[in-house]
Design a protein around this nucleic acid. Structure first.
Lengths: 330, 330
DNA sequence: CCTACTTTCGGAAACGCTTCCATCACTTCG
DNA sequence: CGAAGTGATGGAAGCGTTTCCGAAAGTAGG
């Protein structure tokens, strides 16, 4: 930086101010400094900057399951805008509850980041307070947490879109395969996707049959198992509403093995619009995942800059009708 | 740290040495310092440490496509061991060639990491030299780059396992859908998976028909298109060897739409053993993806510690026979 | 008992930046 | 025309470590 200052003919103090968009620097001077920095292809040392009281230029992203498409896509979107803003992304995978505790226990002590973005999993009150107390910004994406700024879909609306489609087609015996994340207890409160099931059925005047509701751990194989359970009943459903595409795909596999045709014998609908949903001709409710990541990134940028911003964005979902749903055989 | 030094009754210099496993510190003194640090729950400031010449405790992971299962799984494995070793993971998504150039252009200037792990994509000679020159360790995972330490599968062997299975079943008219990454040109050299096709056919005395080879961009939809192209020929194949499961899944979708049954009319085999391969009953060649990430992490740790280590691990692949392959109709 | 080493440890100088405070050249108003 | 602002700039003190170098203390050999 010394070189830059000299090149621009100013002091280090001024150079620093210019580089950090600080106030009290004549526009002309700033341009001169910026030009000099460019010429010398200079970049501030984050270490020194942070040490001297500046920002780290780093944000931590906490994600429960990297290898699941949903999280990866969210991450991809987030990373793209963060990187464009010259921020570095620190990745933290918190698989189970222990990891999670560990993360929230450690990070604060080190103060390595300016902010943390939590991808689609609940953060306890205490954990949140702990972070906020030390001035780390925190935002969420892909899950609804009224507690802090976040962007997500409206799970209940998405669920309704799926359920209403099934009901509109004429189905009355509709099963639900609810998925929960085994590693992330806490949000066991009734999820929006489940509520949608009850509400839709209620509005349509269809009685609720507990037998038609199966709750499993999140995943394709689990979805397959759930479907098997559903098929073992006296009066199997004519349609299945799965909380996610992966689960739906699992259900379809079981149905196929059972010799049932889709959608002639049983209709199946999922949520997410996983890339493979298109390939497998699965009807689903699309949510713009990458976009949620991007929006979260922009929101974070705004907050970091101290600008006003929406503290709760809900992105729309949309029914995508493909070949896995049809009216029930009459 | 000052507090710790005082608490232990030594100077800061000694405290620092003790904390960093440096030499020239009496064992008793070291224990005293460590105890004091523990008592005060002290952790070194990474910023200050780095600024003064220590290591950053950070490693950059460069990945071309976060949201593809393969890369995400690799990343997950890598992250797990790196994190266990107290290293932080900086994530860099380099989508296209520009990003990539940008990355290699910028990172060195910042010196923010101790090492960089390149996930499954080629790095140019010059780029490599640039990194090595400045003392950043570099290793690769998920792709074969003899240039530096790496862990991967043997693509040719994997391809042979797939092809040999098809040939063993009696297929002679076998198509190949080769996949290339549109964003990462450079490795256009014949891939191991393609070589396997030629070699297997050659060994079996089956003539090669160029019409049966289609090269497409990587992806399910592209696989579907490729299959359509294959089906538009006078004499379509009885089996399809796809370079990856996603491509295979795309091919299957086209086959289904064309009213062809799998595996009775056409056999399809992929490579990777994507989680959805199991759900869709796709025969494939499994490669341990997460494990490759973990091995790469360990290898990096060894190198960083200055220990001897294998500089080229090849993990085995394995044929997984499911329902998408069968002998051809005679 | 003295000299020449070998260990162990403390002093202090970086490391590259931010920011408080003082300085200085102008404006502006009475 | 002078006093009181106002905005731009420079000087210098940290920020929390690591590491070079010299000093002190202990060991061994002569």
């Amino acid at each position: 930086m010394e070189d830059v200052a000299r090149e621009a003919g100013v002091s280090m103090a001024t150079a620093s101010r210019a580089l950090n968009n600080g106030t009290g620097v004549a526009e002309a001077t700033r341009q001169r400094v910026l030009a000099a920095a460019e010429r010398l292809s200079y970049v501030v040392s984050p270490e020194a900057s942070r040490l001297a009281g500046g920002a780290t230029g780093r944000v931590a992203v906490v994600v429960p399951h990297i290898s699941r498409w949903f999280f990866a896509a969210l991450l991809e979107g987030l990373e793209s805008v963060l990187r464009a803003a010259e921020l570095d992304v620190l990745l933290y995978h918190v698989g189970d509850i222990d990891d999670r505790h560990d993360f929230f226990h450690r990070l604060p002590a080190r103060r390595k980041v300016d902010a943390v973005v939590v991808l689609a999993f609940p953060v306890g009150e205490e954990e949140q307070r702990r972070l906020e107390l030390m001035g780390v910004t925190i935002i969420a994406a892909g899950g609804q947490h009224a507690a802090y700024p976040n962007v997500s879909i409206d799970d209940e609306t998405a669920g309704r879109q799926a359920m209403d489609h099934l009901i509109f087609l004429g189905h009355r015996r509709i099963a639900m395969i609810a998925a929960v994340d085994p590693d992330q207890p806490g949000e066991l409160a009734p999820s929006g996707r489940s509520n949608a099931y009850y509400a839709a059925l209620c509005d349509a005047g269809i009685p609720i049959d507990d037998q038609l509701i199966v709750t499993v751990d999140w995943g394709g194989r689990e979805g397959a198992d759930a479907m098997a359970k559903l098929l073992s009943q006296r009066e199997p459903p004519t349609a299945v509403y799965a909380h996610s595409d992966e689960v739906a795909l699992g259900a379809i596999r079981t149905l196929r093995r059972a010799g049932l045709r889709i959608p002639q014998d049983v209709s199946v609908i999922g949520i997410d619009d996983h890339p493979l949903a298109e390939l497998t001709d699965l009807t689903t409710v699309r949510q713009p995942v990458r976009q949620q990541g991007e929006l979260a990134g922009r929101m974070l940028l705004d907050i970091l800059r101290g600008e006003e911003t929406d503290r709760g964005i809900v992105v729309p979902t949309q029914l995508v009708i493909r070949g896995s749903t049809a009216p029930p055989r009459s």
